[in-house]
Amino acid sequence: MKHKVILLIVLISSHIYSQNIDLNIGKVTSKKYYEEIGFEFIKDKIIIPVSIEGKEYKFILDTGAPNIISNEINNLISPELIQTIPVSDASGKKENLKVVSVKKLMLGNIEFINTATLVYDLNSNPIFKCFGIDGFIGSNMLRKSIIQIDSKKKILTITDSQKKLSLNKKESIKIKLIGNQSSPYIWINLKGLDNGKENVLIDTGMDGLYDVSKRNYQIFKEKEIFNVTGKSKGASSLSLFGDVPVNEHYELLLPSLKLVDTEFENVVTHTTNDNNSRIGAELLEYGIMTIDFKHKRFYFKSNSRKINLNDFGFGFTRTLKDEKLIIGFVWDQELKSKLSYGDEIIEINGKPVNICNLITKNIINKNDKTLKMKIKPKKGELFEISINKKTIANSGSK
């Protein structure tokens, strides 16, 4: 059979999006700068120290978003108001947010001035509240810089000169900066029985390796690229503005994903409500990422040229609702008779559920083969369940 190729170009929306104002405002005052900044890498979140008006804060590095500060910082520094605009998050939910001009923000000794920044009540979202963060460093502020992220050393390097970094052009591809916040997009290659290419957002604020948007999958499913391994009605994790709507989504097995010159085999992913597919911060577990916004190149120095993931998890996903941990999607057909969307998870592996511990710590490790839970169903009495992890060999996938 001759493999067919399908191309998919995505040119709209991102993790946080507004079409009403250009957020590419502000500049770097420093020249010929180079700074190495230590960071915390917690559950695929890159948390870096940021200084505003002499006070240090904790920000998430998120290339899928613009700059954001908390209400508390906004009230403290009283920045100039630019405009109030409607903003959409990854799930499509909208809120009106202030856009302000932050007069000065420091990353190490690098000074960024008059940066367009959204203001949001981060404490209203339990995920951000548990991480104790004060804001986001987004792509609009980084659009004239080069950033290199080394998760093994936990070092973020920021510079304006390629010569100050050890870069190999053979380990790179072009970036396209899209939209009003300079969101970085690259092409990846997908392969099943057929081949495909997809334009994806590099989103360092996203958990996981690769999410495929449901909209994109509807195009790809005309070809034999993905294998459907599960279908379920439920909800995924929280977006910026809270709960996401209940929808039907798919669990998919992608035999091969090639990014730059690294091939990931047996990639398990799920469709999302976002308009775009995304590459997330899990990529950092497999090598060093460099995003050269200034010259529009993406570099990935991989630990290995071929990586077999082969991990279906436990056949369901978890999410938060009303500050409770609940069942999100149930992919495994046998589990559907036991678990349903909205069932509350009371206990995991003998320990009562603590939301912040679950969000910020590895309560369930990748090496765990069995998961024991105590469940409070929407109807009925408490029960306990033990679930074995699935792999390609025992998933029934072809």
Rank of each mutant, 00 (worst) to 15 (best):
residue 296 K to V: 03
residue 70 S to P: 04
residue 135 G to P: 06
residue 15 H to G: 15
residue 152 K to A: 10
residue 261 D to R: 13
residue 295 H to Q: 10
residue 264 F to C: 05
residue 66 P to T: 01
residue 235 A to M: 11
residue 365 N to F: 08
residue 303 N to D: 14
residue 180 N to D: 13
residue 370 T to G: 00
residue 205 G to F: 04
residue 210 Y to L: 15
residue 230 G to D: 09
residue 383 F to S: 07
residue 292 D to H: 09
residue 308 N to K: 12
residue 207 D to T: 10
residue 40 E to C: 00
residue 259 L to H: 02
residue 386 S to N: 11
residue 81 L to F: 09
residue 73 I to S: 02
residue 229 T to M: 05
residue 289 M to R: 12
residue 337 S to K: 14
residue 345 I to E: 14
residue 347 E to Y: 01
residue 54 G to P: 02
residue 335 L to S: 10
residue 392 I to G: 02
residue 43 K to H: 07
residue 125 N to G: 14
residue 182 S to I: 00
residue 319 T to V: 06
residue 17 Y to Q: 00
residue 280 G to Y: 04
residue 135 G to F: 07
residue 209 L to V: 13
residue 34 Y to R: 09
residue 73 I to C: 01
residue 290 T to V: 10
residue 92 G to D: 09
residue 100 V to F: 03
residue 383 F to R: 02
residue 61 L to N: 07
residue 333 Q to H: 08
residue 303 N to S: 12
residue 121 D to L: 03
residue 71 N to R: 10
residue 113 I to S: 10
residue 108 G to W: 09
residue 346 I to Q: 13
residue 27 K to Q: 15
residue 171 E to W: 02
residue 295 H to L: 05
residue 272 T to H: 13
residue 284 L to N: 08
residue 47 I to K: 08
residue 383 F to W: 00
residue 68 I to H: 06
residue 167 L to C: 05
residue 164 K to A: 05
residue 244 V to S: 15
residue 49 P to R: 04
residue 205 G to D: 08
residue 231 K to W: 01
residue 357 N to C: 06
residue 354 N to W: 14
residue 258 K to C: 03
residue 367 N to A: 06
residue 109 N to Q: 14
residue 21 I to M: 03
residue 35 E to I: 01
residue 377 P to M: 09
residue 68 I to N: 06
residue 14 S to A: 15
residue 163 K to L: 05
residue 170 K to H: 03
residue 110 I to W: 11
residue 265 E to T: 11
residue 324 K to S: 13
residue 103 K to F: 11
residue 120 Y to D: 09
residue 242 G to I: 03
residue 342 G to Q: 11
residue 112 F to I: 03
residue 272 T to P: 04
residue 182 S to E: 04
residue 4 K to D: 08
residue 130 C to P: 00
residue 385 I to T: 10
residue 71 N to Q: 10
residue 317 T to K: 04
residue 192 G to P: 04
residue 95 E to C: 06
residue 42 I to T: 14
residue 344 E to G: 01
residue 82 I to V: 14
residue 80 E to A: 02
residue 126 P to Q: 06
residue 353 V to D: 12
residue 338 K to R: 13
residue 145 S to L: 04
residue 344 E to A: 02
residue 11 L to D: 15
residue 212 V to Y: 07
residue 145 S to M: 05
residue 127 I to S: 02
residue 174 K to I: 03
residue 76 L to R: 13
residue 381 E to G: 00
residue 217 Y to F: 15
residue 333 Q to F: 06
residue 80 E to S: 04
residue 191 K to C: 06
residue 6 I to S: 12
residue 387 I to G: 08
residue 378 K to T: 09
residue 348 I to M: 12
residue 82 I to E: 01
residue 357 N to Q: 12
residue 262 T to R: 10
residue 193 L to M: 04
residue 97 L to R: 13
residue 166 S to I: 01
residue 313 G to S: 13
residue 69 I to D: 04
residue 155 I to D: 03
residue 376 K to V: 00
residue 178 I to T: 11
residue 196 G to K: 07
residue 275 N to G: 03
residue 43 K to G: 01
residue 83 Q to L: 00
residue 82 I to T: 03
residue 369 K to H: 01
residue 134 D to Q: 04
